[in-house]
Design a protein around this nucleic acid. Structure first.
Lengths: 307, 307
DNA sequence: TTCCAGGGTCGGTTTTTCCGATCCAGATTG
DNA sequence: CAATCTGGATCGGAAAAACCGACCCTGGAA
């Protein structure tokens, strides 16, 4: 670009004032500056913008009139950039890129997003459901404003705001012999076969629960899909471990499931909001975080059973 | 505007390159300059455009992505200003503001514009028909690119390119006693009554013809409309003087008219193109002038009889 | 004829832009 | 784990640009 916003502004001012002198007064700039700006534009655009009338100001040429119109549009659009910036950073509107840990999404998101949509009607949420590794990558690349997930192996450059703790539970088919117990320990399950939810980092968490007690689970099946795991358990392939507490008492095929507390002391998963530490959150992101803080607590999580 | 095109360009380059260093190489600018431009924009717009990854370049924030898009649009539009300028000054397209002396218009313009429209399909002509005084004013205010008119009292700051000479003729009703003469002198008409075309400067031209010979016409009627003058003449109100040579041999009411040469030596009206001397003509105006030069000569004028 | 209005031009000053050099922190490599 | 690499931020000085006051010039008005 071989001209500047300032030159355009001076040109528009002169076009509106009908004289350089008048424009100079109107915008409190010296007359030579405006004269130079117009001369520059005329040289740069290769056409005559004004006819100079001695002692009588200026007249726009036909070309000048056309260019004046264009210049005004351009300046308006530039002003619009400020407006867009203000909207993005200050207004409670626009798009929020939200990540969510894949197994949490079906339980938490519907209610959470519903509540937020009522709270902030101008918001649009772009969802990204993935396992932890992908969430971390996306957060670091700032493809996401926020991610609703566990604090599983979060690197230090991500900021994590915890919301609730989810202790591990045991999942059994309703007709499993152990299903009548009030709770179960890992030792109780040593002879049973495990259906493992097989996602990059959560997998390691589940296995670590056994390792801490010196046990090794017998893995019967693995699946990356929570619903497949539940289906396998309901159909007698074994037990599973999960931290989420879906309200549904059956797998997708209708077979009943039972969830029992895991006895003993185990590290829970902490559910919370992660974001890139180097990204200052938008107003929208902050509002969403607040909404999460109000909606998600240890005593209640949207879409989940009480402990 | 508290930012510049350059800063936007650097921002866009950095957004596209994914790093400041890469952008610096791409557009051959030092890395600190780009860093400063981005910092300036972020301060000015009050939001974070990039997240800086140590030793790994930049990521656009969601807001940055939005702003990048806007910035690109803005730069495109600025580039468009160059395009508009080029179109206006170089292309044979766009609008030509054309003035025409009011009595010439109905004869000359239809054929002339028809021919030009075929020659230059992209042209649009904005017509302004008026008497000489108004044409001069409009030309000086550069509301018009060109005016097709006489060189009647044209001030020096207008440039006049003559095309054809129009000597004065006498207009009579076909049944007028003098209508059978091969030509008439002003002295022949001393006893007759004049119907005067009463337009600011042409009026003075007509009267000057009499004054030069020491005669004073008897003015029976005046009208600012050529068709009214012709109607009055056809209905026996007297004779008239005109330089144009309409092909129509009758007034609008159908009554026949006769046109006879004015005997003796009289200053003709020179028909030509006037423009503001201080306005460099556009390509379009130049093309139109050339078209006029080809179409309008002493031996033939669109819409008019031969001498 | 003089005066006035308004645009253009000229020097000098201030502001902005630009660059090379350097600093710094995280990533990579051996 | 240390050395190295990468890429952004910062600093100081140089170059460019914008800006202004003063002045010139020309056409219109008195």
């Amino acid at each position: 670009m071989r001209f500047t916003f300032r030159q355009l502004e001076y040109f528009v001012a002169a076009g509106e004032a009908g004289s350089i002198r008048g424009a100079a007064e109107a915008i409190a700039i010296s007359q030579p500056s405006i004269s130079a700006a117009i001369a520059h534009l005329e040289r740069e655009l290769g056409l005559q913008l004004f006819v100079r009338h001695h002692a009588q100001g200026l007249s726009l040429t036909p070309a000048g009139r056309r260019l004046l119109h264009e210049a005004r549009l351009l300046l308006d659009r530039a002003e619009g950039l400020h407006a867009v910036a203000a909207e993005v950073s200050e207004q409670l509107r626009g798009r929020l890129a939200l990540g969510c840990f894949v197994t949490l999404a079906p339980m938490i998101l519907p209610e959470l997003m519903q509540g937020f949509a009522e709270l902030v009607p101008g918001a649009e949420i772009a969802l990204f459901e993935a396992h932890q590794e992908r969430l971390v990558t996306a957060l670091r690349r700032v493809d996401l404003d926020l991610a609703l997930t566990y604090d599983l192996q979060l690197p230090e450059d991500l900021v994590f705001a915890p919301l609730a703790e989810l202790p591990p539970h045991i999942l059994l088919a309703a007709d499993h012999p152990l299903a009548t117990r009030p709770e179960l320990s890992l030792a109780d399950l040593a002879a049973e076969r495990l259906v493992l939810l097989d996602l990059p980092l959560s997998r390691d968490y589940f296995l670590s629960l056994f390792l801490r007690e010196g046990l090794t689970p017998q893995i019967a099946q693995r699946s990356a899909q929570q619903e497949v795991v539940r289906g396998l358990v309901a159909n007698g392939f074994g037990y599973s471990i999960a931290n989420v507490r879906p309200r549904a008492g059956a797998a997708l095929d209708g077979r009943p499931l039972v969830r029992l507390p895991l006895a003993g002391s185990h590290p829970p998963l902490r559910l919370g909001l992660a974001r890139a530490g180097s990204l200052q959150p938008s107003r929208l992101a902050t509002a969403f975080a607040e909404h999460c803080r109000a909606a998600i607590t240890d005593s209640g999580i949207p879409g989940m059973d009480m402990p």
